[in-house]
Design a protein around this nucleic acid. Structure first.
Lengths: 344, 344
DNA sequence: CCACGTCATGGTAGCGCTACCATTTTCCCT
DNA sequence: AGGGAAAATGGTAGCGCTACCATGACGTGG
């Protein structure tokens, strides 16, 4: 029989809170407190403990912490795409806002699928996250229930609406679509097409805004609308524009679902020697930075993705701290950036 | 609605493995086994346990699991940027490869900072991840040590080289830069500039490849090189190109650090009525899909970012399963895509 | 001088799960 | 049939940390 118990079966001998406590000559719980609520521990002990921590290179085990406190220092973030620049910007805002907090980030990619979203919410929920940030407001009933029962602050982002699960930061895609279309109409375009890829709920709302504006002006014609469920890309924009033109040769303007599509349209116009903005006017959506540099520069609806990410975190942190913001719904709006592509 | 009600420590709502065990009339450990190694449990019990799990809606607590087994089912992924399409693609490959595994993903953004990388490795390491995937091979000595002592498979991605910490998947940026430059030289360009933003180690290597090709042809001139540490973007490409042209008006070609820069250069050429490819030839790097649609289409070095992510996961999973791949270093190469922007 | 609140600290008992055995059952052999 | 190995199942003891309560040392007011 070995009298000396070999150091723990698992864990590569990393120092634990007990090691720190022993070295500092205090109880383990005091170390725990010194790390989490320093003001509740006397100066002296705090210094001693810090010294022991530094010397041993102690880093708390987040798993043990989460288990003991029934709360993980994790933000769950669910977005429908990782490569779409729009969501990448939101995620970047979230990361930047969280970088000097103790919170880690668990990122999930729903691939625009409600089922996948349910699965991920299930997985994320099982970790007892500190907060959840999810894109959109069109969750399935199951997902919505999971969010309601998550037992943590929930922030829905990228949209606005009357009935969030908890909190909501974004803007109105319907208004954005309408504003873009009205701008084209005011600029004198009449046969204005809508070109949209990846018709997710947000794109649908932009389309609805387009339609409202067109109908109001007595210009709507269903043949002006060209959509596809395929994932958006610049090459796809080119193809959809060709289709639209084949279907409706008298087209004199296009409102694009997003900037990738708009760029594809622009390139095709140049290639086919179609004058922009004289023959065709183009409006994009999101205002990626390349829009202002393109030749001709492209009119677009500027949205504040990065800021949405930052606000979402700020609201979640406030809720965690206990002060529920008075404003549960924040509309960050958008701005129409008028450029050469609609200046005729 | 009190969303943040603290969970009571006892019987805090969610079913535990003990609840399932009781309902199924078996021991807790058997439930644990049925979930993790079904083949070690008899058909009968497996069915009973599954029924109990379904009925109770039991989801294992990953924190408790990680604590007990000293191993979290988490892949730590470190990239220098979230919005850079290149890394977004790698991350997407990683996500897709991991989506039907039990592994979650912990994403970290180093912002191209070695210090931030060290900090994140510290944080990630404290969770005892199942594997680590990090971008690049230029870690600080501290980071490298942290990786070596992580106690899990480590895959460095996006580059190739002789001495990985553990495993490595990527391609040679030096060769890519050289190939791009040689292509311009062969096409008859002589005063070929290098334009580069955010000169991270990979960009430096592309520049070195450019320089090697230029020197070999007797064409190198330091005034042909224009770089900046600023983050890359399309507008920046336009500005850098103007600078380069002001510095060296006889410029007749440019090899760009990446496709964003190349696109900015192209737009500026169009705007300034500089003929591409006759007056100026342009080559990008990465071959984003818009390159082939641009007008004129832009020559670029195609790289396999998504595949790099997938391979990295495959190698890590193999290592976790115990069979270390015989090939620790995988070079996925690149391909020169010749297009209109250099066809003169 | 004592009751009583307040502060600083510590002890104990888990959090939900799995590693490590121990035990029982089954199934071959000879 | 008996013996032994393998398969199936269970019990116990933590993993590293924190919630909860206990303790003792103060100060304060009556």
């Amino acid at each position: 029989m070995a009298l000396i118990k070999p150091r723990s079966r698992r864990g590569g001998g990393r120092p634990t809170i007990a090691d720190v406590a022993r070295k500092a000559g205090v109880g383990a719980i005091t170390v725990s407190r010194a790390l989490r609520e320093p003001e509740r521990v006397s100066q002296d002990l705090r210094r001693q403990i810090q010294a022991a921590v530094d010397e041993l290179g102690y880093v708390p085990d987040p798993n043990a912490r989460a288990l003991a406190s029934a709360r993980a220092e994790v933000f769950g973030v669910l977005v429908p795409s990782l490569t779409n620049n729009v969501f990448a910007e939101v995620v970047r805002g979230i990361y930047d806002s969280l970088s000097d907090s103790p919170f880690r980030i668990q990122l999930g990619n729903t691939h625009y699928s409600g089922l996948e979203e349910e699965r991920l919410l299930q997985v994320f929920g099982s970790q007892r996250p500190a907060a959840l940030i999810v894109a959109g407001i069109d969750q399935t009933p199951t997902s919505r229930k999971l969010l309601e029962n998550a037992g943590c602050p929930v922030v829905q982002v990228m949209e606005t609406g009357p009935d969030p699960v908890d909190m909501l930061v974004g803007f109105s895609h319907f208004d954005g679509g309408r504003t873009a279309t009205e701008h084209l109409i005011e600029a004198g375009y009449r046969r204005i097409g809508f070109i949209g890829a990846r018709m997710d709920p947000r794109s649908q709302r932009r389309l609805a805004g387009y339609r409202a504006a067109m109908e109001k002006a007595g210009l709507f014609d269903p043949r002006l609308v060209t959509t596809t469920p395929v994932l958006s890309s610049v090459p796809l924009g080119r193809e959809l524009f060709r289709d639209a033109l084949a279907k409706m040769p008298t087209l004199d303007g296009v409102f694009c679902n997003n900037d990738d599509i708009a760029l594809g349209v622009l390139f095709e116009c140049r290639r086919a020697s179609i004058d922009v903005p004289k023959t065709i006017g183009i409006v994009g959506f999101n205002d990626l930075d390349m829009m202002q540099v393109a030749f001709p520069s492209i009119t677009s609806i500027r949205t504040y993705r990065y800021e949405i990410g930052r606000r979402a975190v700020a609201m979640a942190l406030a809720a965690i701290a206990g002060d529920r913001p008075q404003q549960r719904i924040v509309d960050l709006g958008f701005e129409l950036m008028r450029r050469e592509s609609t200046a005729r």
